[in-house]
Design a protein around this nucleic acid. Structure first.
Length: 857
RNA sequence: GGGCAUUUAGCUCAGCUGGGAGAGCAUCUGUUUGACGUACAGAAGGUCGGCGGUUCGAUCCCGUCAGUGCCCACCA
């Protein structure tokens, strides 16, 4: 028997290991249709946060639901080596020990990172377990494992051979702290305050040009000043020379359409090696491209006395020097967009460097074309498709080489003497050295949907489970990951990697701010689980918002979830207590009482609504339907009403009630099970008849033979009556259990079966049924319910007047519609019919109230 | 500068193709009814951001204005 109180800790204990050991998480080739997904591999950089918990719980619900629906479900787990992020963490740890990675050397450093990886993989496993994720551990992968490395090399070599990967010298984003190149999307742009400096550039034949910049230190790398050839102010200067006030070199004035005449002074300095636009201008005009920064963003040997100085220190000192020389015209405080490294936060420096790139145009084109075909990926919600496409349409070549040690080595080899480049899966020989860089982490993550299934081998798993049925992830990595999985899969598998893509939002703190380490507003899932249990956390995460929207963390809601689970727990306990050792009808549905017919019918509708929403991945809607059924129909009404029978003498009826209760209880816990598997399993195991685990059960199906509209109507009427009596008591300051006398006028409805219920729930001493009009002053409402108690006539009248006024308003509204010829001619038939019905209902009620009002003398 | 989303009860949010405004929490009143006080019964609370338009009818569709949040973008 279930304990008297729901205790999440006791309930959760041992279940995960049980499921895992029984092999319930393992996908098997079998007769069933397959349903496959892969976990977005978490970085091995640290703890999982609430965002992970949310993302994985949605997936777990999906996996468990599909399994219960009869699918052979594969949910493949794994982790990401997270190149930059992990390396940075390990370096930081070493720094605390006073060691740098250079002191360790590459090999030893990488060994240290593997140690780190093992440590954090263990933590992540613990957290997956804590969350109850039904992951197929027999197929777990790591982005840096051997098999995935084969996939990476295969893809790299293939793309290179197709001309879709190239090595080239271009302006890339340089992170001076981590000393590596970054791709465009690893740079976060933010508005920072800055200064716009206006300098005097002396002309060779007298006079000067005013040129403005926010980065004076880059002037050491300037090769010209550019003006728009259409700019009449400057046309005569083109071809002449000006003096760079930083290094006093004479540089030419060129004309180029790129320059915006409206902006600044209309004359722009050009630093080809440190600005993407300047780079393009320099290319057009065949100019030199001097680099002036070292890898740590200090000034290099081209910068005279500033050599070795940090870029900002140089900026400050240089401006002072120029000012001293009388060439600083003015300064202006501005706010401008500055790129920061996503990982280190450092201001990114655009730099001319030789790197490896993926040529995006052909790949993006194919991906976009696929989205217009039958094989398109269905985004949920739909709007994210546009965001994805928009990015695909505008993306630039992807810089994939990183100057790191932790990651997939680039399968490119250089001849020691000739420098010849060989791109190959194997080392071409002793005369060659391998490229020292590694690949962007996302290069390997992009292959995740098929590399984890064994590709490039033709494995059974790949054949059976690919493409995936759904990908579930947050909107902040659509560009990083979703888009890249798409074009790689289309390129190498000729098909999109998944059929659907369910996008969810981000979790925010209770104030609505993004959770982050720096603002220290992060909530540790483990603390929440400790306090409320994982089922409550899972329920909160998956029912608090609609698809695509952010969640605001709310401890109150988690508390509410726990209360809800306690409610289910107690309902189950009540039912089981009443069934223990008693006779239970096996076959329900025959000669049932009206209450049982009612609740069975309501339950079918609940199953229908829940299933409908589960299929659409509308987990919040599905849970709301279930919640309403459980709270209102089942526990607040049916279980209370059923006590009438259970306390009675009729053994057959009692057995029926027990049978119905068990049937519905089982259905309820099967529907709540994907959300809250632990409590569901616990209750399931307590059922008189059950399999070894709830994981072997099937999802409830709607059973049409139990739908009974008539029973629903009858019981709704009864509920109305009971509510009326309750309200009456409150309004007259009677205690709820105050005994009253009821008289009611029997009309078309047969109340006989309802009498015991009405009596018990109204605390009626007696109920008199009048065939005719009743002559009396104590009348209550339209059910023709008379309540003989100390009724304040004036108050009663007022209440009735209020009701009548309400009805009048409804009638007025309804009449307005029904007398409107346009409505009658244009509105759908059903609308008109239902409106007519409503109208009749209002009239009937009004009439009854009015009649009663008249009796109140 | 583009784009996406959002504005509904004190708070957090639902509201499914236009047809009588909902939930949870909070508030107030009452309840030792034998599953649950982590509960039960009731109550109060909203000009659905503003203004136009379409429609017989708009929280819902269109336009516009305003507030909020986010994403993208090479303006020195």
């Amino acid at each position: 028997m279930l304990d008297a109180h729901y205790n999440p800790k006791l309930v959760e204990k041992g279940k995960y290991d049980f499921w895992k050991e029984e092999g319930y998480f393992t996908a098997k080739e079998c007769e069933k249709p397959k349903f496959s997904m892969v976990i977005p591999p978490p970085n091995v950089t640290g703890m999982l946060h609430l965002g992970h918990a949310w993302d994985t719980t949605i997936q777990d619900i999906t996996a468990r639901y599909k399994k219960a629906k009869g699918f052979d479900v594969l949910w493949l787990p794994g982790m990401d080596h997270a190149g930059i992020a992990t390396q940075a963490k390990v370096e930081e740890r070493l720094k605390n020990e006073g060691i740098t990675r250079y002191q360790l050397g590459r090999e030893n450093f990488v060994k240290k990172v593997w140690e780190w990886k093992d440590e954090y993989a263990a933590t992540i496993h613990d957290q997956w377990k804590m969350l109850g994720l039904s992951l197929d551990y027999t197929r777990e992968r790591f982005t840096l494992d051997e098999g995935l490395n084969r996939a990476v090399n295969e893809v790299f070599v293939s793309l290179y051979e197709k001309g879709l990967i190239y090595r080239g010298e271009r302006i890339i984003n340089w992170d001076p702290k981590l000393k590596t190149a970054l791709s465009n999307i690893e740079v976060l742009h933010q508005d920072d305050p800055g200064t716009f400096y206006y300098f005097r550039y002396l002309l060779e034949d007298g006079g000067f040009l005013s040129v403005a910049t926010t980065r004076p230190e880059t002037m050491f790398g300037d090769v010209c000043v550019v003006v728009n050839p259409k700019d009449e102010r400057y046309t005569s200067y083109i071809g002449k020379k000006v003096m760079n006030p930083a290094n006093h070199e004479w540089i030419p004035i060129l004309g180029d359409d790129y320059v915006d005449m409206e902006f600044g002074t209309g004359a722009m300095k050009c630093t080809p090696a440190h600005d993407p636009n300047d780079f393009l201008i320099a290319k057009r005009h065949h100019l030199s491209m001097p680099i002036i920064l070292n890898d740590d963003a200090s000034m290099n040997e081209r910068c005279s006395v500033y050599q070795g100085m940090d870029r900002y220190e140089c900026r400050e000192k240089l401006v002072k020097q120029i000012e001293k020389e009388g060439n600083l015209l003015k300064t202006e405080a501005i706010v401008h967009n500055v790129g920061h490294s996503e990982r280190s936060g450092e201001v990114v420096e655009p730099m001319l460097k030789k790197q490896w790139f993926v040529k995006m145009t052909p790949l993006a084109k194919a991906a976009l074309k696929n989205q217009k075909s039958e094989g398109k990926v269905e985004f949920l919600p739909e709007r994210f498709e546009k965001i994805y496409e928009n990015w695909m349409e505008n993306c630039e070549d992807w810089c994939i080489s990183r100057q790191l040690w932790w990651g997939h080595p680039i399968p490119a080899y250089y001849h020691k003497k000739t420098g010849e480049v060989v791109v190959s899966k194997n080392n071409p020989g002793e005369d060659y050295v391998q490229d020292e860089d590694v690949l962007d982490t996302w290069f390997s993550s992009a292959l995740w949907p098929f590399s984890t299934l064994g590709w490039p081998e033709k494995t059974k798993d790949l054949e059976r489970y690919f493409p995936l049925d759904i990908m579930i992830t947050a909107y902040d990595i659509i560009f990083f990951w979703v888009s890249r999985m798409m074009f790689q899969s289309i390129e190498f598998q000729n098909v999109a990697p998944f059929k659907k893509c369910l996008i969810h939002g981000l979790i925010r703190d209770s104030e609505g701010k993004k959770m982050s380490k720096s603002s220290k507003n992060g909530v540790d899932p483990r603390a929440v689980i400790e306090k409320y249990g994982v089922d409550a956390l899972r329920y909160f995460l998956t029912t608090s918002t609609s698809p695509g929207m952010d969640i605001r963390y709310s401890e109150e809601k988690i508390q509410a979830a726990e209360n809800y689970l306690n409610k289910i727990w107690n309902a189950a306990r009540f039912i089981l207590l009443n069934c223990e050792g008693k006779e239970i009808s096996k076959e329900i549905g025959k000669n049932l009482g009206v209450m049982e017919r009612y609740i069975l019918s309501r339950f079918q509708k609940c199953v229908e609504n829940v299933t409908y929403n589960m299929e659409k991945y509308e987990f919040a809607n599905a849970s709301t339907h279930l919640y309403n059924f459980i709270y209102d129909d089942f526990t607040s009404w049916y279980l209370e009403l059923s006590k009438v029978t259970l306390k009675g003498e009729d053994e057959k009826k009692k057995a029926d009630v027990r049978g119905v209760c068990l049937y519905i209880l089982k259905g309820i816990i099967l529907m709540i099970y994907p959300y809250t598997p632990f409590i569901a399993e616990e209750i399931y195991q307590a059922l008189p008849e059950h399999k070894k685990s709830i994981m072997l059960e099937s999802y409830p199906e709607k059973e049409i033979q139990y739908v009974d509209e008539n029973a629903e109507h009858i019981v709704e009427d009864l509920k109305d009556m009971i509510r009326d009596v309750r309200t009456f008591k409150v309004e007259h300051q009677l205690t709820p259990n105050q005994e009253v006398k009821l008289k009611l006028r029997q009309k078309d409805l047969s109340f006989d079966e309802l009498m015991p219920y009405l009596k018990r729930f109204s605390f009626a001493k007696e109920i008199e049924i009048e065939k005719e009009n009743i002559d009396g002053a104590k009348i209550y409402r339209y059910f023709d319910l008379w309540i003989e108690e100390n009724v304040n006539i004036e108050e009663q009248k007022k209440l009735l007047e209020k009701e009548i006024e309400k009805m009048n308003q409804e009638i007025k509204r309804s009449e307005g519609m029904l007398q409107n010829t346009n409505f009658l001619s244009k509105a759908p038939k059903e609308k008109i019919e239902s409106e007519k019905k409503k109208y009749a209902e209002y009239m009937k009620k009004k009439e009854a109230y009015t009649e009663q009002w008249k009796r109140l003398k």
